[in-house]
Design a protein around this nucleic acid. Sequence first.
DNA 1: CGCGGCTTTGATGTTCATCAAGTAAAGTGG
DNA 2: CCACTTTACTTGATGAACATCAAAGCCGCG
Lengths: 220, 220
Amino acid sequence: MCELKGLFFERVTKNELDNLCNHKIEKSYRKGEIIFEAGSAIDDFIYLKSGLVKLYKLCNNNKEQIISFARPFDFVSLLNVFSDSTYSYSVMAIEDSVTCNIPFSQVRNLVLENGKFALNLLEKMSQVSDKIIMESLTIRQKHLRGRVAYLLLYFAEYIYHKEEFELPISRKEIAEFIGMTPENVIRTLSEFRKDGILKIYGKTIEIVNTEMLKQISNLG
Amino acid sequence: MCELKGLFFERVTKNELDNLCNHKIEKSYRKGEIIFEAGSAIDDFIYLKSGLVKLYKLCNNNKEQIISFARPFDFVSLLNVFSDSTYSYSVMAIEDSVTCNIPFSQVRNLVLENGKFALNLLEKMSQVSDKIIMESLTIRQKHLRGRVAYLLLYFAEYIYHKEEFELPISRKEIAEFIGMTPENVIRTLSEFRKDGILKIYGKTIEIVNTEMLKQISNLG
DNA sequence: CGCGGCTTTGATGTTCATCAAGTAAAGTGG
DNA sequence: CCACTTTACTTGATGAACATCAAAGCCGCG
């Protein structure tokens, strides 16, 4: 069975995707493995079948910046796939992950031939781009405590749909995503713990007072 | 004559766009006029024919955040056009501008019918999204001085292609774009002036020492 | 087991926002 | 066209938010 259908909403039928399915290759990655690196050639159109990945890039000062995370059925080779020949960012698995890779030429051809597929691709692309941009603006307008609260709620509500979960990333990576230092991320987590908002067992986080956390996220 | 051709690179011929051209409407806006506001319905596909506009949105605390600027032949109704029915941001002319509006249904139909058009649209969309996201990350990693330097170079090199130009936006708007306060933007501009990097005549900026400004932008 | 990277806490200094107050510029109504 | 109002601009002083530095404990991994 081909899971591609799940990617493309209602309007594209399974038959219309059969040719793509025949050319797709699945690849497995362990947590921590790099799926591709910035600067490498864009040969395949890649989407995430299972797991969790981070999109990131290196700054001038050799520090990493995390752009966003991608869930199953998100595209990871998304942002500059159609406008560039090399990736402008890197992707790493932060949980064991499986990607589905389709030769880019196949996708190009299907866009040329199948209008419904093209329209769905446009919808999906504009959706994801919009999400990343708005997310970035949201984080930027907050202070340290608000940013940390936002991130915790992001994982609890958007990724895991649970109030207790194991953080798939290090404190340092949280810092790289919200644009603060690891020390201050840790300090903030400790404060939330002391205030009874969280319970922390190493990488495992339990949100005790969701309402308070939402308030901190919204106001700060 | 139809200027749409300029939007879509080589592969789409003029004939293939004739139908769109017949349905397009041009609208003129004075500096300061709002082209559309966040929350309003997406009826048209809009691109900028001439002038300069800012894309922005309101935060929770009622402050404005400038997302990006769009030049002629950039799409202004871009980010969430295909994924949503209302705009998630507003657009205002910051110079006298002319937009070209095409009923969205027409664009949809052309995507469905014309693969080359669809592919070009995907290229353009991914290009613009990528630009905005990378721009945002670049700014975020810099400090005050670096951000102001970056913005000045952005206008000098990317928008006006001159070392002397009239800023189309207020100090407050610069602050809203780079995520700092107006006071600190002004202070930084004054510092650059005292250091002999700039000459400032009200809204007119002349970059005297481009190399120094680039260094500040890159390092800080 | 021992090295290196991640985590945690505290102390210190830098960067930046806020407040205040004054000047210049730009729009408004008589 | 001028007084008037408002908005933008500018500078300084103060305090808050955050980065940096330092030191110690922890954990995983070869």
